[in-house]
């Protein structure tokens, strides 16, 4: 199935989790936050939260600012 991670299309296995999406991006598991379709997913749920086809996933971290 395809999903959108930070605006780019990725192919993931059906039933993929938030952790699979992080791996697809090569993102670390600390210092990042994840939202799926506009909802923040708590870190504790990353392994269990299943992604739906065409889900829009945002992976954010701290950058220079302010």
């Amino acid at each position: 199935m395809h999903v959108w991670i930070n605006g780019e299309r990725h192919e993931l296995a059906v039933g993929a989790s938030v952790l699979d999406a992080l791996d697809a991006l090569g993102a670390p598991r600390t210092g990042v936050a994840v939202a799926v379709d506009g909802e923040v997913i708590p870190r504790a749920d990353w392994a269990s939260a299943r992604l739906a086809a065409a889900a829009r996933i945002e992976v954010l971290t701290a950058v220079q600012g302010g």
């Binding site: 670390p28 990042v32 992976v59 950058v63 220079q64 302010g66």
Partner: peptide, 12 residues
């Protein structure tokens, strides 16, 4: 710090 999409080059 600000919060933005993670970038593979700069990471965390």
């Amino acid at each position: 710090v600000a919060m933005r999409r993670i970038d593979a080059a700069s990471g965390t």
